[in-house]
Simulated scan of single mutants.
Amino acid sequence: VSLVLVVVRLVMRDTIKHAFSGVFGVAFGVVFAMMTGNAKDFYLPGMLYTLGLALAYIITTLCGVPLIGLILGPVFKENLSWRTRNPGRKKAYAKASWAWGLILLAKCAILFPLYWWADTTQFGWVLIALKIPPFLLAVWLTWVFLAKAPAPIDVFAEMEAAEKAEQERKAAAGSAE
């Protein structure tokens, strides 16, 4: 299926980056399962990645630098200004990071026992069912928290305004001489 998606994207002359990353992920899982001789091990790298991501969200939040803020700060043109200049925004990023971390941990709490005790087919269906709903819940909670937060400080606009003011000051000083 992954290879078919690559071909479809090539025919449509669309970007193939995501299709190739899917092929890479599937190939990695297949190689892992082949090495261990257990079909269920196909899912293990993804599960370990999910656990690592959950811990990253939680640990970065505990350290005062929520991962969601590190990801979304540059998107909202605030970089890391939210850490010191916008405490309400930092609190919203922390809440969102907690949500992501706890949702992913809950997913792991369901999947790891099933990995050990369920048969491969049952486990595969549960894993598929737990792909999109937890992700959508985390995205929705992030939106809720950020919608209530103070607006981001556009540090790029501030730098451009300061640069323009400096140029105007120099121009005024040059014309005064």
Score class of each variant (00 low, 15 high):
residue 136 L to G: 09
residue 167 Q to T: 11
residue 140 W to M: 11
residue 162 A to V: 08
residue 152 P to Y: 04
residue 90 K to D: 05
residue 65 V to Q: 15
residue 139 V to G: 13
residue 94 A to V: 04
residue 102 L to G: 04
residue 124 G to L: 00
residue 95 K to L: 08
residue 128 I to R: 13
residue 155 V to F: 02
residue 89 R to T: 10
residue 171 A to Q: 12
residue 142 T to Q: 15
residue 81 S to M: 00
residue 76 F to H: 01
residue 123 F to P: 05
residue 70 L to D: 14
residue 67 L to M: 12
residue 162 A to H: 12
residue 120 T to I: 09
residue 133 P to F: 08
residue 137 L to H: 15
residue 111 L to E: 02
residue 141 L to N: 06
residue 113 P to Y: 00
residue 108 C to Y: 02
residue 104 L to E: 01
residue 65 V to S: 14
residue 117 W to Q: 10
residue 113 P to M: 01
residue 137 L to P: 05
residue 140 W to H: 13
residue 141 L to V: 04
residue 118 A to V: 02
residue 140 W to Q: 15
residue 159 M to V: 13
residue 161 A to W: 07
residue 138 A to W: 00
residue 79 N to I: 12
residue 77 K to H: 15
residue 102 L to I: 01
residue 132 I to S: 05
residue 157 A to H: 07
residue 151 A to N: 10
residue 155 V to T: 10
residue 160 E to Q: 10
residue 148 K to S: 13
residue 120 T to F: 04
residue 127 L to T: 15
residue 131 K to I: 12
residue 171 A to F: 15
residue 152 P to D: 09
residue 171 A to V: 14
residue 78 E to L: 05
residue 163 E to L: 10
residue 169 R to A: 13
residue 145 F to Q: 05
residue 168 E to P: 07
residue 128 I to D: 14
residue 123 F to Y: 10
residue 82 W to M: 09
residue 163 E to V: 10
residue 141 L to Y: 09
residue 134 P to G: 04
residue 149 A to S: 12
residue 85 R to H: 15
residue 124 G to C: 03
residue 116 W to F: 04
residue 152 P to E: 03
residue 80 L to F: 14
residue 137 L to R: 02
residue 94 A to L: 07
residue 105 L to P: 06
residue 144 V to I: 11
residue 163 E to H: 12
residue 95 K to W: 01
residue 74 P to S: 07
residue 98 W to Q: 01
residue 98 W to N: 03
residue 112 F to Y: 02
